[in-house]
Computed example of a mutant assay.
Amino acid sequence: MSLIERLKEAQKDAMRAKDKLRLGTIRMALAEVKQKEVDSREPVTESDTIAILTKMVKQRKDAHSQFEAAGRQDLAEQEAAEMVVLTEFLPQALTDAELEALIAKAMQETGAAAMQDMGKVMAWLKPQVQGRTDMGQLSGKIKAKLG
Rank of each mutant, 00 (worst) to 15 (best):
L23T: 06
Q116V: 09
L21E: 08
A76R: 03
Q137A: 10
T49A: 01
K34E: 09
V129L: 02
A14C: 04
A97D: 15
V44R: 00
M83D: 02
A69R: 10
K8H: 09
L138Y: 00
A63N: 11
V57L: 05
K145P: 01
E32I: 01
V129P: 01
R60M: 12
D13M: 15
R60C: 09
V84P: 02
R41F: 11
V129D: 01
A106K: 05
A81K: 05
K36R: 15
K120N: 13
S47V: 03
G24C: 05
K141S: 03
M1H: 10
E37N: 06
A114I: 09
G119H: 11
K55Q: 07
D13K: 15
A80P: 02
E46C: 04
K120L: 14
E37K: 05
K55A: 04
G136A: 12
M118P: 02
V129R: 01
T54S: 15
Q108V: 10
R6I: 08
K145Q: 06
I50H: 00
M118I: 12
L125H: 03
D13V: 13
S40C: 09
R22A: 11
Q108L: 11
A113T: 13
S65C: 11
R6N: 13
A51E: 13
Q108T: 14
Q35H: 07
Q35K: 08
Q78C: 04
K34S: 08
T95W: 12
L99V: 06
V38L: 07
L21D: 05
D134N: 10
A10M: 02
L21I: 13
R60T: 08
A97S: 14
I50K: 00
T87A: 08
Q73I: 12
I103Y: 05
T87Y: 03
K8V: 10
D48Y: 00
T45W: 00
M15H: 11
D117L: 05
S65A: 15
L138E: 00
E46W: 02
M28P: 02
D134M: 02
I26S: 04
Q92C: 08
R6C: 09
G71M: 04
T87V: 10
L30F: 04
P43K: 03
S65I: 15
Q35A: 11
D62T: 14
D134F: 03
M83G: 10
G119R: 15
G119F: 10
R132G: 09
E46D: 08
M118N: 06
I50C: 00
M115R: 11
G111E: 04
H64S: 08
F67I: 06
I103S: 02
S2E: 13
A31H: 09
